[in-house]
């Protein structure tokens, strides 16, 4: 059999062939959800959620729109009403203040969707990042020399130091995302939460943002992000949590989570999971046009995946060597796709 072609195989055997790293579960616990139900105005959106996050993990939360991804993120931020269950935070004790979101003193760096703010707001990059140190920098309106030095340091780390004095309206999509990440990082967070960091950005920006997050993760930052993009983003992460109807449907490596059964249950739609080497690719069939489409991704995602043969996000070997996996390619009977 041509090794470059996908093949059907029993699920367990195939899982064993993948070299996705198991999620890093050896770090000390950071956050534990014990049968947590949470929501707004007394209405539960998340139901009976058990979840453990450990220091140094890189976790993606996937699920259809309205499934509870953002609510889970907001619950991690302490911004929802907890209706049942217990949340345990294990913050590292350190001097000084910090951005504390939950009740347990965990420092959370939050990166919202870029379209959540007015990018015509009269503020410079440096001033935005300084907001991340609003508590540490004292009660005076102006920033100290140390604050400005820290801003320079974090901007240099994210390769946007030359933009410090630039108004935010003059930034590209990728630069906007980096500014938000810089603001989150300057508070020295225990965990960075990102809401759809690749939503509405072009392929190049998505590539840049994911590589940046991969670098941060390798440097020890704990990262949790939500994403709609199963192929170009989720399938590259070490650990995925799939949410549907406010419940956790699956939790594990991409091959464990991105299965036809899990996706059917979470999304209520038939999807096909293509497996090749170490890569997972999810497609769905458009009945109207009769073509196979990238599931959950945006336009051009398939091309991105195909061109990412050598990508290495978050230390995860990315897609295999076969190029040309396209949205319009309906797999033949002979070569698959394999349903897991």
């Amino acid at each position: 059999m041509d090794p470059s072609q996908p093949r059907a195989a029993p699920a367990d055997a195939r899982l064993a062939q993948h070299s996705f790293p198991r999620p890093r579960r050896d770090g000390p616990p950071l956050l534990e959800f014990d049968a947590v139900s949470a929501g707004y105005d007394g209405v539960a959106i998340l139901r009976n959620v058990d979840l453990e996050l450990r220091r140094g993990e890189f976790v993606g939360i996937v699920g259809p729109s309205g499934s509870g991804k953002t609510t889970l993120l907001r619950t991690l931020l302490g911004q929802t009403q907890r209706l049942a269950g217990e949340v345990r935070e294990h913050a590292v004790s350190r001097g000084g203040g910090g951005s504390r979101a939950g009740q347990g003193g965990l420092r959370v760096g939050y990166v919202p969707q870029v379209e959540s703010v007015d990018w015509n707001f009269p503020i410079t990059v440096e001033q935005v990042v300084l907001l991340g140190r609003w508590r540490e920098s004292g009660w005076r309106p102006w920033s100290s020399r140390r604050d400005r030095a820290l801003v320079r340091e974090v901007l240099e780390r994210l390769s946007i130091d030359e933009l410090a004095k630039r108004p935010i309206r003059a930034l590209s999509g990728g630069q906007q995302q980096r500014v938000f990440i810089a603001r989150a990082l300057i508070g020295e967070p225990d965990i960075v939460l990102l809401d759809e960091p690749t939503s509405g950005v072009d392929i190049k920006t998505r590539h840049d943002v994911m590589h940046l997050l991969g670098d941060l993760h390798r440097a020890g930052t704990t990262i949790v992000l939500t994403t709609h993009d199963l192929n170009a983003v989720a399938s590259h992460l070490p650990r995925l949590v799939c949410i549907g109807e406010g419940r956790i449907m699956a939790d594990g490596t991409p091959p464990e989570v991105l299965t036809a059964e899990v996706l059917r249950e979470a999304y209520g739609a038939e999807m096909v999971v293509l497996r090749h080497g170490r890569s997972v690719y999810v497609v769905e069939h458009d009945e109207e046009s009769g073509v196979w489409e990238d599931a959950g991704g945006e336009e051009g995602a398939a091309a991105f995946v195909a061109s990412e043969a050598d990508g290495d996000l978050a230390g995860t070997p990315a897609l295999g060597s076969r190029r040309g996996t396209g949205t319009e390619r309906a797999p033949s009977e002979e070569e698959g796709p394999s349903r897991v």
């Binding site: 931020l77 302490g78 911004q79 910090g98 951005s99 504390r100 979101a101 959370v108 939050y110 919202p112 959540s116 703010v117 007015d118 707001f121 503020i123 935005v128 907001l131 991340g132 609003w134 508590r135 920098s137 009660w139 309106p141 603001r183 508070g187």
Partner: peptide, 23 residues
Amino acid sequence: LFVWWKQLLFVTFDRDVAGASGV
């Protein structure tokens, strides 16, 4: 305004993140 400057600016620019950051 002097004492609450940073908090007011933070909430005016990005209310959600300001709340998440402890404002």
